[in-house]
Design a binder for these strands. Structure first.
Lengths: 181, 181
DNA sequence: CGTATTTTATAACAGTTGTTATGTGAAAAG
DNA sequence: CTTTTCACATAACAACTGTTATAAAATACG
């Protein structure tokens, strides 16, 4: 799976051929076809695995013994491309988003993932919400914010990454702070 | 160009082969190779053309004789996938974003486009800003918001498009309203 | 009209792709 | 030890790709 992620993130979805992924993984195509029926199956599994790895990190952050605000902040940071691993994850997601607009199967995969993600955020927002607003609306707004911010950081020129990273952290804390005052 | 857009939006970047684009355009590959040196040249030109079409619409909206708030709202609406044409545009952008993470040339193309887009928004925000905040920060925030919202609408299940569209419009007006109070 | 130039079509090329079939060696089972 | 199963490698296939070269048609121009 790590091999697929690296190929997709560094060379793009189109470069993720069976031969290329196998080569990076240090095996031959025979090993891949033994475990995956299709090229599509391999790629979808790579996407699922990336989703699950991120999901596990977020659940872990959500269960830490912190204040409600600190918990939410920790989870949101986990969702953003703030280090190399998470940046790779974002590149993989972005590649699949680009393909999902033309692929009903990927679209559905994405939809399922978003439902979970939304449920998690909504639960974390519930104890923080100001009365007049629904936590579902807050979750929607936060997801939109995270997606936009993640793209901004992911597509920044590599040299600008540190600056973008710092700005993203500041924007997140300001945004979460604004939910409370 | 319209043929490239339709192929990319409906079938994905990978399906945008010379033969497929030519077929949709009602010509043969000979016509394409006459005008474009490369496949890459064709695709980049398709991206540029999409950017320019959207840019022209936005400039037009920015120059209409409206209040500062209404002007900003009109421009932002023009940037969102609120009808079929703009949805197609977003699918094209999304496809290129997915590829840009692994392609320095596309990354730079995207960076240039963002600089213009940011300048336009900043100018529209200037007369609206509350004193303590810089219009550059407001522009950053707004761009993040628009990108996230555009993705949300673009990747919604087709059946949910009307609902998502309505929600997006409401979120934009609320967001712009919050810049003023 | 005839000629020059631009535009498009056709055809062929070598390279790459996903897929399938078959071979091979190692581990597990008896 | 023997046999069976599993994990992988190798090889071959037809299909499709971008690119290039060449021919034909359409247009512009004198």
């Amino acid at each position: 799976m790590a091999a697929s992620w690296n190929v997709i993130a560094q060379e793009g979805l189109g470069a993720a051929t069976l031969r290329r992924v196998a080569s990076v993984a240090g095996v031959t195509t025979g090993a891949l076809t033994h475990y995956f029926s299709d090229r599509d199956a391999l790629l979808i599994e790579a996407l699922r695995a990336a989703h699950m790895a991120a999901g596990a990190r977020m659940l872990e952050a959500a269960e830490r013994d912190l204040s409600a605000k600190a918990r939410l902040t920790a989870v949101v940071f986990e969702a953003l491309p703030l280090d190399y691993n998470r940046l790779t994850e974002w590149k993989v997601w972005l590649a699949f988003w680009g393909a999902a607009a033309a692929d009903a199967r990927l679209l559905d995969e994405n939809r399922r993932r978003y439902a979970e993600w939304r449920r998690l955020l909504q639960g974390l927002l519930e104890p923080l919400k100001k009365e007049p607003r629904q936590s579902s609306e807050l979750a929607d707004h936060l997801m939109v914010f995270i997606d936009g911010l993640g793209i901004k950081v992911t597509l920044a020129a590599p040299a600008r990454f540190p600056r973008e990273r710092t700005r993203a952290v500041a924007m997140v804390t300001a945004h979460i702070e604004s939910l409370l005052d």
